[in-house]
Simulated assay, not measured.
Amino acid sequence: MTENAIEIAPDSALIVIDVQKGFDDASFWGPRNNPAAEENIAALMDAWQESGRPLVLVQHASSRPGSVLAPDRPGYAFKEFVADRLGQESLLVTKTVNSSFYGTPDLADWLTARGVRQLVVVGIQTNMCVETTARMAGNLGYDVVVPLDATHTFDLAGPAGLSLTADQLAAATAVNLQGGGFARVVTTTEVLAAAEPA
């Protein structure tokens, strides 16, 4: 097996993070990257449901005043393609911070009860909740796979006039996760091929 080859376990869990309508509000978030993210997330959700692998949907309930992701705002709802794929067997985790491991119900407890040791992490935003969840999963000892093209983010301003584009932030996430040993960064196509039944 080559260094970049991946194997998807029969009980690998797909963690779909914060694919909510509020992220479509360009006036709130600014320019985004990777317009193919939603199509790739949908393809992965379909593959997971067809194979009977566990599917976890994470929903961000923002407590920040004026947030488009506040529970009482229309933007809190999942995007239609996710809502259409929400099955009764899917776990729904609600969180108020970046890490999906600090939500309700407890994600780690749920995974442990099922013996799940591999996570495929996708969603929004690449450098925020996806990266934070993947880092924490790596710290907790999970085998973490991140198909970067099934995520997207937005341009972001930082200190002292420093700002990065969404693509630059995604590249930084890829380096942080794989270079830092938290996760393997791959493509949706690679995951789908590895997830196919033998």
Rank of each mutant, 00 (worst) to 15 (best):
A174D: 12
T189R: 15
E3D: 11
K95M: 11
L140K: 15
S99M: 07
S51R: 14
S51C: 14
E39S: 10
L111C: 10
L156P: 03
Q20N: 08
Q49P: 05
K95Y: 13
V175C: 14
T126K: 10
P159V: 13
R85K: 04
N40H: 11
A47F: 02
E131R: 06
T165R: 09
S12N: 07
A166Q: 03
V130I: 03
P65W: 02
L107T: 06
A108Q: 15
F101N: 08
Q20G: 00
F78R: 02
A172N: 12
L119C: 12
A172F: 04
D109A: 13
F101A: 05
G141D: 01
L169H: 02
E39C: 03
T153D: 15
R32S: 14
G141I: 13
T173V: 07
A70Q: 10
Y102W: 09
T189H: 13
Q118I: 07
V58T: 01
I6N: 07
A9D: 14
A183I: 04
Q88F: 06
G181H: 00
E38S: 09
F28R: 07
D24S: 07
E196H: 13
G22L: 01
T151L: 02
V186Q: 12
Q125E: 15
S62F: 01
L91Q: 04
A170N: 11
A171Q: 14
T188N: 06
R53F: 13
G22F: 00
S63N: 11
N40Q: 05
V93R: 03
M128P: 04
L44S: 07
K21V: 02
R117T: 11
L91T: 00
D11K: 07
W29K: 05
T187V: 04
A193M: 10
P197W: 15
L162H: 13
A83N: 03
L92I: 15
F28C: 01
R73C: 15
Y142N: 04
V186N: 01
A37K: 08
A166W: 03
G87C: 04
T173Q: 07
E7I: 15
I8D: 05
L162N: 12
T96Y: 09
R135D: 05
L119F: 02
I41A: 05
T187N: 08
Q20D: 02
F101L: 09
Q125D: 15
L44G: 10
V191P: 01
V144W: 01
V121T: 13
D46L: 06
T173E: 04
D25W: 08
T133S: 05
E7A: 15
A150V: 03
G141E: 12
T189I: 04
